[in-house]
Every structure is written in C-alpha cells, then in structure tokens.
Design a binder for these strands. Structure first.
Lengths: 237, 237
DNA sequence: CAACACATAATTGTATACAACACTGTCGCA
DNA sequence: TGCGACAGTGTTGTATACAATTATGTGTTG
C-alpha cells in the first residue's frame, strides 16, 4: 500500500492537506457519473488503497458523503452507495419543487452577462457529452446547470440544499429512470436559459416548475422494487 | 484519561458503539441551549477528556456538526462553535420562509389527535422552562415545536432541512437577539397549534409565514458587527 | 524600544495497531 | 438430509503514536 501511496504523491502535492476532500470529490464524481452503482460496497481498505490514503481519511470522506445521503453507513457493516427508496425519490422531488422554482425566479432577477455565458457553456458541454455517448457525464453536467442557477440566486444556504437534492437525484435517476423518454431535458434548459437571459422571473419560475415535473414523470416510481436491491444484482449487472 | 473512560463506562453501556453520536448529541444540545457560545473553541483533547472518548471519536462528531454548520472547522486550527454572519442569518430565515409555511400546511392536512397532544405538551414544556428561568432550554423547545410540525408533514427530506435551519437559527438568536421584544412567540405557537388542530391549512401556512417574519424582525441584523467576533470577546463574556 | 527571527510548545492531520463485531463455512447431531 | 452451534476470516470501531502545522515566547538586532 505504501508503494501505491508514494506512486500517487506526485499527483497529490497540489492538495497538500485535507486529503479527505479529494476522496470525497472523487467518490462523489464517480457516483454522479454512475460509475459507482447504487448499492455498491465501499470498503474502507479498498478505497484507501485506491487513493493511497489510510482508513482514517476514507472514513472521514465516507461520513461526509453519508451526510449528503450519497452513501449509507450501516453500523459495523460498512458503507454502501445509497439506494434511495421510491418514497425518498418522491420526497427529493417534492423538496426540489419547493426550492428550485423560486430560486430560478431570484436568479432571473440577479443574473449577469457573465452568468449567461457560463450557463451557455454548461449546456454546450452537456450536449457534447451526450454526442460523445457519455450519458453519465451529461447527467452530471445537467445537475451542475441547476446548481449554477442556485448560485446565481445568491443564497448560499438554499444553494447547498439544492446541491444535496441534485446529488440524490442523480442516484434516483440511476435507479428509476425509464428509457422511454429520450434525454430531452436539454430543451428545457435552453428555455430556462432564455427566460433568465431576458430577466423574466415569472417565466423562469414556471419553466423550472414544469421542468421538475417532467423530470419526475420520466421516472418509474411504481414501487415495483421499492425494497433495496441486493448486492448480487448490483454486482451482476 | 483511561481512568475517566472507565469511570464513564457504566453510563456508556447503553450506547454500545457509535460513541460519536452521543458526543454529537451532547455538543449539539449544549449549543442549542446556549451553554456553548458562538466562537467557543472545541479542542479535540478537551472534548475527548470530558466525554471519555478518544480524539478519533471527537473528530467524527465535530465533522458531523460542521456539516450542520453548528461548528466551523478551520484547517490545522481547530473547531469552533459557528458564528453565523448577518448574511447567513438572513439566508437561513429566507430558507425557512420558503420551506416552513408550506410544511405547516401539509401538517395541517395530515395531523392526528396524537400529534396535537404532543404539540400541546411541547408548548407546555416551553412555558414551564420559561417560568423556571431557563430561556436557553425554552428556545430549544421552541425549535423542537417547529421540527415536530415538519415531522407531522411526513416529508423526511424537508424535515431534515428544517432541522438544520432551526439549529442554525439557535446560533443566530444567540448572536443577534435584541432583548426589546419579550419572548412572546409562544403565543404564535398557540395560534399555530389551533390552526393545525382545526385542519385549516391556509391559516397554518399564513401563521407560520408571519411567525417567521416576526422572529426575523426581532433580530438586530444591522451589520454593526458583521465581522466574526473575536475569541477574547467570547471568553471575556 | 520596536521588530524580526528562531526555538519551543501545543494542537491538529494522518497512519497504524488492536479490539469488537459480523459474515462464512464446517462440523456435529437429530 | 436438515438444522444449529462454533470456529475462522475479514471488516469495521476505537485508541494511540507519530508527523506536520500553527501559535507562542524569548532573544537578538536595528
């Protein structure tokens, strides 16, 4: 293990200390991009070996992720990528419906030229990822679009909540997405962007609301398998 | 230190493992009841000695508290009870205004007899604490009243957010409360309880909204001392 | 006397060691 | 053969040791 650590030291020297933050970021990204599937076990030794840190650091990272509900900690049994239940899925979108439309309105009232440019960039990246056949990355970028809007609204507290909700949404989509509908949401993002650019708060609020409803309705939340999936299913897939 | 640990083992045997949760609870309670003032330093060794656990456990607890923004972690410099800025204070109440009125409406639509009984109990406890001259405890109970309403609304995700916001509100009140207005909010809680008991969602939502506005207006948020208070002031007080 | 530099002490960041618990497979018994 | 007890193995929970960083106090120097 020491060898591996030394092998990664070169790449780590930018991160000086606070090694757990890097692990948090890497794991969160892997979950967001669906490289880690819901239910996957995150063994402390294994994760530590991969990133060249001790279990102490890994534990801190896992605890942090568990607070965002990306990871579920079971006492004496380890950490697993969370598997939101159908009920949790509904709750998350309920909360988003409560927070995001109003936030979009605030954003429309405060948005600057630079913000618009950044948002256009996000959308372009999203399309590019889709064209490259990286739906996981596209989904991640789609989430960042929402977070960017929250940032523009300039309410750090609400932004944090939205960030958590979007992270969980990523897991929910991994579990409950039904392929039927194509990934058409980029259209919704375009419309939102236009509303923001024109400073139309009413429209932005409405568009966000219906966008979230669309998203929710594209999920299959009939509680067919509301029970947590077994590890075997996750590993076999 | 070992002696102390053994000395507490008897009291700890109910908590089997997960020792950090107990530390989290104790520290959070101390903060909520204003026994720990904003800005107070939480040394790992010291906290560990008090609760008879190692720094490992204390660190886990502090990290958890920092995620709820009750504690601020500064790299290589330790953990301090958070000192929300004026801006954060406004943001917290903005978020509460977004979440709680709608939640109160939901609660009114779902409330049961047992819930009403529990809420009455909360209010009674709150009054009792005030009469006993324990304003810190009364404030804590007042927060629990809000959390109870969120619980009744049966949206665990939103409940968690509200829980965080109320925890932070406790710190905000510790910092920015202006004595002028008496602790009259119990009245507001009574009115809310009646609205809930009669199943009047509209009224509950309105009452919650104005209750939060009252609370906000009872704070002194002119940024007289928006800069974080010095440790000396905290210690000298 | 003020200001800087350095040595010292104290505290946090990380790694490792040991203990406690959970899971797995085997053996014995009905 | 089926079920239960038990030991073995591996993983997590906690404590401690060491390294790195910061804060403090002292002495020197302009």
């Amino acid at each position: 293990m020491m060898d591996r650590k030394n092998g990664q030291t070169a790449a780590k020297d930018t991160t000086r200390d606070g090694a757990s933050e890097r692990v948090v970021a890497e794991l969160a990204l892997a979950i967001h991009e669906h490289r880690l599937q819901p239910g996957a076990k995150l063994s402390e030794d294994e994760v530590g070996a991969i990133y060249g840190v001790s279990r102490t650091v890994v534990r801190a990272a896992l605890q942090q992720l568990s607070h965002d509900r990306l990871v579920e900690l079971r006492r004496n049994r380890g950490a697993y990528v969370a598997q939101p239940s159908v009920r949790e899925a509904r709750e998350v979108f309920e909360a988003r419906a409560l927070l995001e439309p109003r936030t979009a309105r605030s954003a429309a009232e405060r948005v600057t030229e630079a913000d618009i440019v950044a948002l256009r960039r996000h959308i372009a990246d999203e399309h590019a990822a889709l064209d490259r056949g990286e739906p996981g990355r596209a989904l991640h970028l789609s989430g960042l679009f929402h977070i960017e809007i929250a940032r523009i609204a300039n309410q750090a507290t609400i932004e944090d909540f939205i960030r958590q909700l979007i992270a969980r949404s990523s897991l929910i989509i991994a579990l409950y997405w039904q392929r039927r509908t194509a990934m058409c949401e980029s259209h919704a993002h375009d419309a939102l962007l236009n509303a923001l650019a024109s400073g139309n708060g009413d429209l932005a609020e409405d568009l966000m609301k219906s966008h979230l409803l669309d998203l929710l309705s594209s999920l299959d939340l009939r509680n067919v398998n509301s029970a947590p999936r077994t590890l075997q299913e996750a590993l076999g897939g």
